[in-house]
């Protein structure tokens, strides 16, 4: 069993209105030192395989096909065995 922790983020060139709104709230709470906030998504996916190369290939494919939209988002992931 492998667990993939996938992080999907808006590309740096794409404006993040949610991040900006949260930044404003943090400022008003006294965290004036916050310069930027970017909001992304974390997904945890468990795969029924003991082959790390295969797990990686499968996660890559699902990110490309569904989990991230390559027009506006980047993704990265970490694999953890037996999690």
């Amino acid at each position: 069993m492998y667990k993939a922790t996938i992080v999907v983020r808006l590309k740096p060139s794409v404006l993040d209105p949610q991040g900006n709104a949260v930044k404003g709230s943090l400022h008003s709470l006294g965290f004036e030192d916050v310069e930027e906030v970017r909001i992304g998504k974390t997904m945890e996916v468990w795969l029924d395989t003991s082959d790390s190369a295969l797990a990686s290939e499968r996660v890559e494919a699902m990110c490309k096909k569904l989990l991230a939209n390559p027009v506006i988002e980047n993704y990265e992931y970490e694999l953890e065995e037996g999690a």
Partner: peptide, 10 residues
């Protein structure tokens, strides 16, 4: 072509 984002005013 392109993609949809959340409205800029949320």
């Amino acid at each position: 072509p392109g993609a949809m984002r959340v409205n800029d005013h949320l």
